[in-house]
Amino acid sequence: MKKILISGLLASLLAACAAPAPKPPVDNTAAEEAARKAAAEEAARKAAEEAARKKAEDEAAARKKAEDEAAARNRLPNAATSVYYPFDVDVVQDADKVAVEAHGKFLSSHAERKMRVEGNADERGSNEYNLALGQRRADGVKKMLELGGAKADQVEAASLGEEKPKATGHDEESWKQNRRSDMIYK
């Protein structure tokens, strides 16, 4: 009897507690349905977005890869573009041969590229002699470029003689800068 009473009391207590809280069962179901739908839509949108982003990324990566490959193909050789000479000498020195060969190889694989070689001389000698010396220097570089695979019509050799000195002093420091051929891509 005592047990029943307690149970009854508990039940009524429970009832008393539960009574004010619950929403109407119909309302509850509709909201859940709407939320689920919204979530599904959100997920679908996110998936689509993700797919689009992935696609764009893949395309960008492919494009970049193609560009990189093209750039690598067209990248100028990582080699010096000037060569230097001892006094009254027109032969490319051993130290500079690697650079000239690298440019020759590049020109050989890029038939569309053109280069101008400008020969210069220091001021010791007559202007005309130095013009001739600068031409021999430029012609020597052109020949070496051709040995490396460049076609004759890709390379123009010109001389500036002593007319456009890079350094203007009457000293070896200036002269050695002016005894020079420049390889200039057009």
């Binding site: 005309e128 013009l131 031409q135 123009e156 001389s159």
Partner: peptide, 14 residues
Amino acid sequence: KRRLVADFKGSNSA
């Protein structure tokens, strides 16, 4: 008035 009398490849001079 002037005339270009020698303009071959390389140098034309002196």
